[in-house]
Simulated scan of single mutants.
Amino acid sequence: MAVDNEAAAPRNTRTKPRAGRAVAGLVIIVLLVAVGVLGYLLWQDQRQDALRQSAADDATRLVIQLATYDHTDVDQNLDAVVAEATPGFADRYREVSEGLRELLASGEGTSTGTVTHSAVESLDGDTAVVLVFLDQEVTNVTVPDGRVDSSRMVVTVVRDGDRWLLEDAQLA
């Protein structure tokens, strides 16, 4: 019976290294999959952060553009806002601006907008809602020395390629 034990011993030694290699290979595969998944999640998180930042930056720029005007060239301001707005917002803005054109000209109105703070409230696919704190330095014939009007706005922007278009801007 001693011969059988010796024959059995080499088989066990051969099986253990194979099982160890199989477990090690499985562990390596699991680690590679985990690293891949974590890398993808990190990339996705960074992409969301970049979209949030670009939405806040573009909304800030668009609100400044919306709040800055000069009675001597209302069309330049109108064209600039319309060029970076969705068709729906552009139509609404044209309607409102037509009514204000004469008022701005007769009142010699000018305004310079400055955004002091902005933050993305929500980001859902290609639509972002941005909260904006706006200061508007206004001068006209009634206030020739100017005054600062502070507003809080809820701005909706929609992704169009690599830029955001103005979809809506409401006073909060």
Rank of each mutant, 00 (worst) to 15 (best):
M1R: 06
D4A: 15
E6F: 13
A7C: 08
A9G: 13
A9D: 11
R11E: 06
N12V: 13
K16N: 05
G20D: 03
A22K: 01
G25R: 08
G25K: 06
V27W: 07
I28M: 01
V30N: 00
L31D: 05
L32Y: 08
V33E: 00
A34C: 12
V35P: 03
V37P: 09
V37E: 04
L38M: 11
W43V: 11
W43C: 05
D45S: 14
Q46F: 11
R47H: 15
Q48L: 15
L51A: 13
D57V: 14
D58N: 06
D58W: 04
V63Y: 02
V63I: 14
I64E: 09
I64K: 01
L66W: 05
L66E: 02
T68C: 07
Y69R: 01
D70V: 00
H71L: 12
T72N: 12
V74A: 14
Q76S: 12
N77W: 13
N77F: 05
A80H: 03
A80K: 03
V81G: 00
A85R: 00
G88Q: 13
G88S: 12
D91K: 01
E95V: 05
S97Y: 01
S97F: 03
R101T: 04
A105L: 15
S106R: 10
G107P: 08
S118I: 09
E121G: 09
S122K: 02
G125M: 09
A128C: 07
A128G: 02
V129I: 08
V130K: 00
V130S: 05
Q136I: 11
E137Y: 14
E137L: 09
V138S: 08
N140E: 02
V141C: 10
V141D: 14
T142Y: 10
V143Q: 13
V143N: 09
P144H: 02
R147S: 10
D149R: 09
S151V: 07
M153Q: 00
V154P: 00
V158E: 05
V158Q: 02
D160F: 04
G161Q: 06
L165M: 11
L165S: 04
E167H: 12
D168W: 03
D168V: 01
Q170N: 09
L171M: 07
L171W: 06
A172H: 11
A172E: 08
